[in-house]
C-alpha cells in the first residue's frame, strides 16, 4: 500500500519544496495521519493539532529527508511522536514509568464465551463503534500505538517496526498483547449484548 503511494511522489520535487507535489503528499496521507492521531488521543481537536504539526515538521524536514526509511513510515513516525508528546503534556501527573510494563506482565486468557454469532448489525452498530474506540483507549500507549499502526492503518510488521524504531520481535509481542486485551474488553461487552438478545427472544 505505502510502496504504491510512494512511487507516485518525486522526492526531488518534495525536497526542493515544490508546493504542488507537497499538496499531493498532504492529500495522500492526511486521512491516515488524522485517523492515527484520533485513535491515539480520542479527541478531534488534539488530533487536528497533531495532524497540522506533523505536516509542518515534515515539510520543514523534507529538504534533508534521506529516504533511509520510506516516506510513509517517516510520516507515521513524526505523527506518533507528536501524539505521544501531546499525551504527556495532557497528563503530566501520570508518571509513565510507574505504569505496569506491558511487556513483562504475565499473559493469561479469560473470557471463553463465543459472541461471534452476533449479527453484523449488532457487532458494528454505532454503540458498538464507541466501545471499539474506548477499548483502544484502555491500552497503554506502547500497546496502543502498535495496534493502531498494524491493525487500523494496516502497516506490515516490518513497516511498524521501522516507524517506531523498535525490533520486529517487540512489535509482535506488543501486538499480541494489545489484541488479546482488546478481545477481552470486547468479549465483556458483546457477551452482554448476546445475553440481552437471548432474553428478548424468550420474551417474544
Amino acid at each position: 500500500m505505502s510502496k504504491e503511494n510512494e512511487q507516485e511522489f518525486s522526492l526531488q520535487l518534495l525536497r526542493s519544496g515544490d508546493r504542488a507535489e507537497i499538496a499531493r503528499l498532504v492529500d495522500a496521507y492526511s486521512t491516515k495521519i488524522y485517523r492515527l492521531a484520533l485513535k491515539m488521543l480520542a479527541n478531534p481537536q488534539d488530533a487536528e493539532d497533531v495532524l497540522q504539526n506533523t505536516f509542518l515538521k515534515a515539510i520543514q524536514a523534507l529538504p534533508k529527508f534521506e529516504a533511509r526509511s520510506s516516506l510513509s513510515t517517516w510520516l507515521y513516525r513524526i505523527a506518533v511522536n507528536e501524539s505521544l508528546m501531546l499525551i504527556r503534556r495532557r497528563k503530566p501527573e501520570i508518571d509513565i514509568s510507574l505504569k505496569k510494563d506491558d511487556d513483562e506482565s504475565e499473559l493469561e486468557l479469560t473470557h471463553f464465551s463465543d459472541w461471534c454469532c452476533l449479527p453484523e448489525s449488532e457487532l458494528i452498530s454505532a454503540e458498538a463503534q464507541e466501545h471499539l474506540d474506548e477499548a483502544v483507549q484502555k491500552l497503554s500507549e506502547k500497546l496502543r500505538v502498535v495496534f493502531i499502526l498494524r491493525d487500523i492503518e494496516k502497516l506490515s510488521i516490518a513497516e511498524t517496526s521501522e516507524a517506531l524504531e523498535i525490533s520486529e520481535a517487540a512489535v509482535k509481542l506488543r501486538l499480541l498483547r494489545a489484541r488479546l486485551k482488546l478481545r477481552e474488553i470486547l468479549s465483556k461487552y458483546y457477551v452482554e449484548r448476546l445475553d440481552s438478545e437471548k432474553k428478548d427472544e424468550k420474551q417474544s
Binding site: 488524522y34 464465551s113 487500523i152
Partner: peptide
Amino acid sequence: VVVDTLKKTIYLYHETSEKTAI
C-alpha cells in the same frame, strides 16, 4: 473460542477503521 473471537476482534477494527476520513 479464543481464536474465533480474536479473529473477529481484529476483523471489526479492520472493517470500521475505513470509516474515519479527514
